[in-house]
Design a binder for these strands. Structure first.
Lengths: 351, 351
DNA sequence: TTGAAAGCGGTACCAG
DNA sequence: CTGGTACCGCTTTCAA
């Protein structure tokens, strides 16, 4: 593999000139530039990244840390980041930091310190205090997709709004007995995203004067997990809500599949709304609050590069809006059905 | 950020000694080694990867190229690779090489040549001749997970066997009208994996003397794609097969969901078998041929490191067995049902 | 067992 | 506009 010295020799110029010609930095005459380029091309020359990094201090590599690779949101963000980086000639080094694993520990202890990259994108990382401290003091720009706090620059959707809007949609359809399904209960260790969404739901219920009807069906935030939780929760027709807002589409779809299994018709017996606009949303006719993780990945790269350009840039928090996409998993409450927990209890007594 | 010179100074030794002490190469007395280590620790010293790479020629970084990140198989393999690399202190640089994109082209044209990594793992890449040529002549070891040919070292399951075994399982249950659903028809540009699986299916049908009944329902190899294809294909009770083997679990599940929507009972009206043992398999009680992409990722790393140790090692092809996992999406053919395309046609006449 | 010094392959300053 | 040269931070002979 040829070095720049070989190129220089072949072009009949010095290493310095060859470097200038190739990188585009500094003055070089058109003529020599072409000579050098031709030489480089004929030699199939590619600059060694380590040498470039060592001498410039730039790695042209971006680190990406995320706790899951196999969930829709994360995979989409990753693809968004990848496409954008590829476009700009940057490499992507990936770290899978599953909570509670030794791997995650090593990432924070060793890998991040190696400075193999110029900047870092943390996706839904939910770092604990110790980890956050490390992230912030790491010495190069960090942007978070779905952040915690504003210690770093953040790109995310407005979770509170999304959950509120979802709940409102159901309220507008006449539902009163609306449950929330997902993670994020106060007791267990759960993701901040989920907690923000639960709270958006509770806020909306309160605003509609339906706090008393509010309830949280706790479920693992995966499709099978939600299926299992929903099979349990939707079994009894007397305690079944008329509508549910799910913390994300995977959970919503798990619930829909559970409902079908139980013979509960969606949306006539049960309305379901999610958040995401997952790739499966269409086939389940899922009404949802659409977000674009891909776009968030793209924006994260953009922000990161800005911070790379100007390290003194203040950190920012960007909250993208989620858009309501109405399909047919939600419908107006059937007037023949009982309408909410309280009414239902009265109805029970009346029997 | 301190350099090795700082460590050396603090420990009162030369750079050379410090380096030896830290890397474990060459003779250093216990005493000085400890001094150096202490100094490094107190300074929070971490060697610059670019400097190490430049001087040793090793990047301690592995490249991973795959065409999809958001499909189960790929995400699982990636996680398997990641875990193994993390364990060994190696970094992972990821390239998302979607077929037909400019990004893919750039990966092959520019990125791979930068030698940012010591070795490459290509997952389900299905390179065209030109790309394969590049891959092989790249100058460092390459191992493929799901390979094409044996130009590189390969780790994969035996697709032909998996599809055959799946088909045989249905045959053993008394089915005669068994269709295959998935990509891989000869006409369109499709993945080799799928083609190998179709052919396994056809082989098994032939071996069972049921070639005449064999048919291929062409479907996109995604869950929603399979759902759409299955809704079309399973609608008419008279042409509906009694069993289907799906090219993978995502397709199988798409088909099951379609069947449910159409009111077709699985397994009493229709048996479905897949290949994978996907994370959703359990919740759909899917009978399948189990493979472990994670394990394949792990093995790929192992092989790659062997080739890194000894560049002269011959390439190998490793085909892991898939194991039949029987759940309840398959059942013995209901004797009241007609049994196969030919018989059915006769039955139609009889009416 | 340790230290001095020569690279690894570029970039960038400074002089010409 | 071009060439000489120091240096990026570490490893690795080679001598001591």
């Amino acid at each position: 593999m040829p070095g720049i010295a070989d190129v220089a020799r072949l072009a009949g110029v010095s290493k310095a000139t060859a470097s200038r010609a190739l990188t585009g930095t500094g003055y070089v005459s058109e003529a020599t530039r072409n000579k050098v380029r031709a030489a480089a091309a004929s030699l199939n020359y590619v600059a060694s990244t380590s040498a470039v990094s060592l001498s410039t201090g730039r790695t042209h590599n971006i680190g990406v840390v995320m706790p899951y690779l196999n969930r829709w949101f994360f995979a989409e963000v990753l693809e968004g980041i990848q496409v954008e980086l590829l476009e700009r000639g940057l490499d992507l080094t990936l770290y899978d930091a599953k909570p509670g694993t030794r791997g995650r520990q090593r990432i924070f202890d060793d890998y991040l310190a190696r400075k193999r990259f110029d900047g870092l994108i943390a996706v839904g990382l939910e770092p604990d205090d110790n980890e956050l401290e490390r992230l912030v003091s790491i010495g190069f720009p960090v942007v978070s997709v779905v952040g915690s706090g504003d210690a770093t620059t953040v790109v995310e959707i407005d979770d509170d709004y999304a959950a509120r809007r979802a709940t409102e949609h159901l309220v507008e359809l006449g539902h009163r007995d609306i449950a929330f399904i997902g993670g994020g209960d106060a007791t267990t260790q759960s993701a901040q995203v989920d907690r923000r969404r639960v709270s958006g739901y509770f806020n909306a219920m309160k605003a509609a004067g339906m706090s008393a009807n509010a309830r949280h069906i706790v479920s693992e935030v995966t499709l099978p997990g939600a299926y299992a939780a929903a099979v349990d929760a939707l079994g009894d027709a007397r305690t079944r809500p008329t509508a549910i807002v799910a913390t994300c589409d995977e959970v919503a779809i798990g619930a829909i599949i559970a409902a079908r299994r139980l013979g509960v018709q969606v949306p006539s017996d049960l309305s379901v709304i999610g958040i995401d606009d997952h790739e499966f949303a269409e086939m389940f006719s899922l009404t949802t609050l659409q977000q674009s993780p891909r776009e968030q990945g793209r924006i994260a790269v953009e922000r990161l590069l800005e911070h790379l350009e100007d390290p003194d840039l203040p950190t920012t928090v960007e909250r993208l809006p989620a858009r309501l996409v109405v399909r047919s998993s939600t419908a107006a409450l059937d007037p023949r059905r009982t309408t909410g927990a309280i009414d239902r209890r009265e109805a029970d007594h009346a029997r």
